Simulated assay, not measured.
Amino acid sequence: MNPALLLRALTIGLLANVLAVVMSMSPGHAQTALDKVSFGTNWVAEAEHGGFFQAVADGTYRAYGLDVTIVPGGPNNNNRMLLISGKLDFFMAANTLMSLDAVVNDVPVISVAAIFQKDPQVLLTHPESKITKLEELKPLTLFVSKEGVSSYFQWLKSEYGFSEEKVRPYTFNSQPFIADKQSAMQGYVTSEPFAIEQSAKFKPGIILLADYGFNTYSTLIETRGDLIDKKPDLVQRFVDASIVGWYHYLYGDNAPANAMIKKLNPEMTDELLAYSIARMKEYGIVDSGDSLRDGIGAMTDERMASFFDKMVRAHVVRSDIDYRKAYTLRFINKGVGLDLRPKK
């Protein structure tokens, strides 16, 4: 080869290599390491956690610069304690009462988003009773769990005049309810009605407490105050990506998330997953109320104050606590993902 041409080729090659290195170091082309994040749920994998699994499975968290590990909960796992001790970054709290309890006990966790606008708690009835309103449940035997008696049932007493004389222990066995046509049983709208249909071959009546004023938020994202102070950008990205994951799960192709759920929870079936998703959409569990305007995850000061006042009247929480320490609106109500909701 002509020496001059050889020198020119080598020079061009060197410049190309230098340019490639510079391009890889520029912000638009940087191969930035993902931030590792751990998120603990409060139960085994199920559709009620679907948006979080969706954000892992379809790459949404990665698109937000996050490498997220979901740690499923269960009867023998206390993921909230792992959050408090610093071994998890985020936790899925069941409802606002947990957030208020954290304030009472000076636990340094804060709710940063409320994925469920409505708590899925229901009371189920027999079709023969023809009950269509909450007040009509008063004469019935009520199967309520120990946790239910100390929380939502106290609200039923203070707001609607229910009596504990009608309460019988609910041990997560539906047979006593099935056997007694003059009874009602607690459950979640996303699961227990399906189980009754499968085992007893009848479709129970459903009274959703949220539709009668039990306005706790549910499935909240909690984190520690120190993480908010030190890494607010990470908290924001996790909240935003989780919200997008929930839009994809409800309104897009949720097969990737459901595959993850079934792998982690072999007892889960396609039929129950489909039922749970359909009920979440039908009853507006995730996407209703304020979320229609502000996006999934929405919370408001007014609603938090309203629920706190109800729990004080029901003697579930003390009146002297500062409930505003339980949550922050800093990371939500920004309309994230609203463009992903199907147009009507």
Rank of each mutant, 00 (worst) to 15 (best):
A298G: 05
H49R: 06
G289Q: 14
H29F: 09
A102C: 04
R313A: 10
L82Q: 13
G225W: 14
K157Y: 04
G335E: 12
L7D: 07
M25G: 06
G50S: 06
S38H: 02
K281I: 03
Y249F: 06
M92Q: 15
A9D: 15
I207A: 07
T269M: 04
V112G: 00
K310L: 02
F202Q: 07
S288W: 15
P75Y: 03
R318F: 08
L34R: 10
L34G: 04
Y217I: 13
T223L: 00
V44Q: 14
Y160M: 01
K36M: 13
N95W: 15
Y251L: 05
M92Y: 03
D35W: 02
F53C: 01
H126D: 15
N215T: 13
K201R: 12
A326V: 02
Y188W: 15
D294C: 00
G187T: 01
K166D: 02
L156W: 14
D211H: 10
S163C: 05
L82R: 11
K344S: 12
V244P: 05
P127T: 14
T328H: 12
L140D: 01
G74K: 07
F177L: 00
E135D: 15
D233R: 10
G59I: 06
I277F: 11
G28C: 11
G73W: 03
S85T: 13
S199W: 02
Y323E: 09
T269I: 08
H126N: 04
A195Y: 15
L97I: 14
L124H: 05
L134Q: 08
E267R: 12
A278C: 07
V18Y: 09
D322V: 06
G225T: 10
S276M: 12
I110L: 15
V68W: 08
K343Q: 10
Y217K: 14
L338C: 03
G28P: 07
A259Q: 14
I70V: 10
T171P: 02
R279M: 14
Y249V: 01
A94K: 10
T223C: 00
V104C: 13
K157W: 04
A200L: 06
K334D: 04
L250K: 04
E222R: 01
N2P: 12
I261H: 06
F177C: 00
D101E: 15
M268I: 12
D180K: 04
L15Q: 08
P176M: 06
V37Y: 01
A326E: 11
R237P: 13
